[in-house]
Amino acid sequence: MDLFEQIERTRHLGELFLLWLWYHSDIDDTIFYLSDNSVLTLAIDNQIVLEAKLTEAEKTVLSGGAPSDSREAFEALRQGKCVSQAKFRVQRDEKEWVFTLNGARLEMSGLKIPALMTKAEDDKLYERQALIEEIDALVRGLYEKFLSVRLDKEGWKIEEENLLDWITRKSQGEE
């Protein structure tokens, strides 16, 4: 199998990663621990896009308020829709980033970074890059953690049951 095919066949894992982030953000009270023991908080912000892949062009865009708590979002999951993109708010060490992450491409858009402290042009470039790289590394760290669960046969079996239970409970309006 060539690289192109490998890339195309695994795009769905990026979308599952977004669902996994949503699930853990909800059940773990937004707190995530990375493999280097660093801690961050991650919450879904004000937008989630859910898409049906098997039927044609069925898209649910939920924005404003707290879409990740809405029954509509969980109903869409129950109908088999996957999370194609979501807006996240991440905090670590008094720094905050807000961005939209596309699942199939793991592409960041509309990234808002913490305010820059430097004034000189060259320093601004370095600081801006450092803040972009920091959030990039955090997302990669979370993805690595997701993969460690998804690629572990037994671990994923348990996680999958928990996910199904969570979606069912939430779609019925339970906390």
């Binding site: 199998m1 490998q6 890339i7 894992l13 990026g14 491409r105 793991l106 993969l147 690629l151």
Partner: peptide, 21 residues
């Protein structure tokens, strides 16, 4: 970048990459 290439660049092993595919 993509879910597959991000995994590869994170150092995920060949066997796990196969499982992903």
């Amino acid at each position: 970048d993509s879910p597959f290439l991000m995994a590869k660049h994170l150092g995920i092993g060949e066997k796990d990459l196969e499982t992903m595919v």
